[in-house]
Computed example of a mutant assay.
Amino acid sequence: LVIGGELSYNVRDLSGKFNKKKFFEKEFYPVSLFYLGMTTLKSAYRMVLPNMTMLSIYMDYYNQLNKIEGNASRYVPVYELYDSNRSFEPLVQNYFEQYLGQFPAQVFDKINENFIRCSFYELVSRYLSHCYTFAIEQNNSVGRSDFEMIGIPGTDYYTDDRVVEFKYYRSKDADRMLALTEPLAEHVEQVKGYAEDTKKKFPNYNVRSYVVYICANKGWKCWEV
């Protein structure tokens, strides 16, 4: 769910008599999670996480399973600085170095953009949920934006809106992508379309857009466009 973004199921198991004996068997997990209210149905074949709160719970559990340290000392200095300079790039750097930097090299051929979106959201929301609301794959007229953080009315962050397009590249492509001095044109066009749509909906907001490349464990790039 945190990597693939969804879970397949079959209707017969879901609509049939509930089987307590199978509740903790791996192949029955989709049904068990659904009955616990921890997933919701996307279609007749696939289920997804129902909301951002549940996403945070899943990501926190994933971090515990993989012994990813959540010590605030890794993150707080960067978020304290964000209060004064509102610079988004150091948040990406901190995420790459302090969070992704804890994973062994072999993990980076298994994770994908969905995992990057989810784990970045979980980290940022730990420290900025008092001043922003967040959205992942936000629907708009030109598609679905990867990540958005919207300033909460009544806070100093009101009217601050950041729209981010994440791209994830595995080790074999890392050197090529890290050598770029600017993001690819299609990615710029993509995130600008999302930003323009957000601006139409919230004309009083200052909308800033970014393209972020995470290149396995080799490096990262972040451009404001």
Rank of each mutant, 00 (worst) to 15 (best):
A135D: 15
Y45E: 13
E189P: 01
P30D: 09
F28G: 03
L33H: 04
I214H: 00
R176C: 11
E27G: 01
L55V: 13
G219L: 07
G16I: 05
N112A: 03
R144C: 05
Y205W: 02
R144M: 13
N85W: 04
K201I: 10
F96D: 09
N139L: 13
Y168R: 09
V188I: 15
G4Q: 04
K218Y: 02
Q138G: 11
Y213D: 05
S125I: 02
S32Y: 08
V142L: 05
T53G: 04
R208W: 04
G143P: 07
I116F: 00
Q93N: 14
K167V: 00
R208N: 09
E137F: 14
R126V: 04
F28M: 06
L180D: 06
I116E: 01
M149V: 00
E80I: 14
E182G: 06
R12M: 12
Y61L: 10
N114R: 03
V31I: 12
F24P: 14
V212H: 03
L81T: 15
K200D: 11
A216G: 07
C222M: 13
N63P: 02
V163P: 01
S56N: 01
Q106E: 15
K21Y: 05
L123Q: 08
F202L: 15
R144K: 15
D83S: 13
F103Y: 12
D197N: 12
I57E: 13
L178M: 07
A195M: 03
R170P: 04
F103N: 11
E165M: 06
G16S: 14
Q64G: 03
G154Q: 14
Y127D: 08
K21I: 07
L100D: 03
Y95C: 01
K199C: 04
F134Y: 01
E27V: 07
M38N: 12
W223V: 10
R208D: 10
Y82E: 08
M149F: 09
L36E: 12
S141W: 03
V188E: 08
S87H: 01
V225C: 09
E165I: 09
E137W: 11
V31L: 09
D161K: 13
F23N: 02
Y75M: 03
G70Y: 13
L128G: 10
F96I: 11
N19W: 00
F18R: 15
A135E: 15
E6A: 12
A135S: 14
Y95Q: 01
N85G: 09
G154N: 04
L33C: 03
L49T: 06
M149N: 00
V191Q: 12
S73E: 11
I136N: 02
H187C: 08
S32K: 11
E182I: 13
F202I: 06
A174F: 04
Y9G: 00
S119E: 04
D173W: 07
K200S: 12
L81W: 05
L100S: 00
E97G: 14
Y95H: 01
L41P: 00
S171E: 11
F166N: 00
K200G: 09
T181W: 09
L65M: 14
F147D: 00
N10W: 08
S209L: 00
D160S: 13
